[in-house]
Amino acid sequence: MTGPVGLGIGWRPEIAGFVAGLPGLPFVEVIAESVPAAGPLPAELTALRERGVAVVPHGVRLSLGGAEPVDPARVAHLAAVAELTDAALVSEHIAFVRAGGLEAGHLLPLPRSREAVTAVCANVARAQAELPVPVALEPVAALFDWPDDELDEAAFLTEILDRTGAHLLLDIANVYANARNRGADPLDLLDRLPLERVAYAHVAGGAEQDGYYHDTHTSPVSPPVLDLVGELCTRHRPPALLLERDGNYPPAAALRAELDALAAVGGLPVVT
């Protein structure tokens, strides 16, 4: 399996100092769009690279699930960031973020239809042709479903992975959020996904609001999500786990405790 090994954390400028102080850290993820294609990397990221910490560029605005062909300039940017960071793997989402000339501002789910599978696979193939390294695809959290889904989530995702040969970036918090908001059992999805294709798994905290569970990345990882990480590892232990935090940053001790808890559940070396 190409890609990271061990326990990582999403690198964000706000917690760069904290991340720099993690002695055993094997890898970080960086939002690809936050890095200028021509460089230079933020100094803290360069320092991590010099320490041997691997970097996975994580795209959020490619819109691989858009019906229109993916923007070659955005693919070129992701490719350039992969080169800059000497990455072994990049990741993006099975989602679209713009349509009809409008930006949505976040990742939106696709209809689980044959037409959408074809569209996303075509865009992934276009990206793969230009990227210097393999790509892992991440299914997203959504508060709504399209009215005419033809496939269930497992069949939809498996079909895309089979046709593109891409790795899976499984976000356990998304699995939890979707199941909870649909009133489904998250284990049903875990039981049916090709877990041997998981390059790494995302873990994050969310919040209940207006009757929905939102994958906000601004709260601590909750016990049910941590339990679900355990369920994943029981079925097939992924090579790597990554903690995502995107705001409302806690004191360093709390973040360290979250990393330690993840290492324990995932059977991975402690990084703190």
């Binding site: 019906a67 349509a99 939106l108 037409e115 033809e150 069949a155 079909e159």
Partner: peptide, 29 residues
């Protein structure tokens, strides 16, 4: 259950259903 062979074929074309591009645009709008 996750094998491609188990994926149902596309439904008969519904005249009220437009292209994916148009439907994505309507949703974002």
């Amino acid at each position: 259950p996750a094998s491609p062979a188990n994926v149902p074929a596309t439904r008969p074309t519904d005249p009220t259903v437009t292209t994916l591009a148009a439907r994505q645009a309507a949703l974002v709008a």
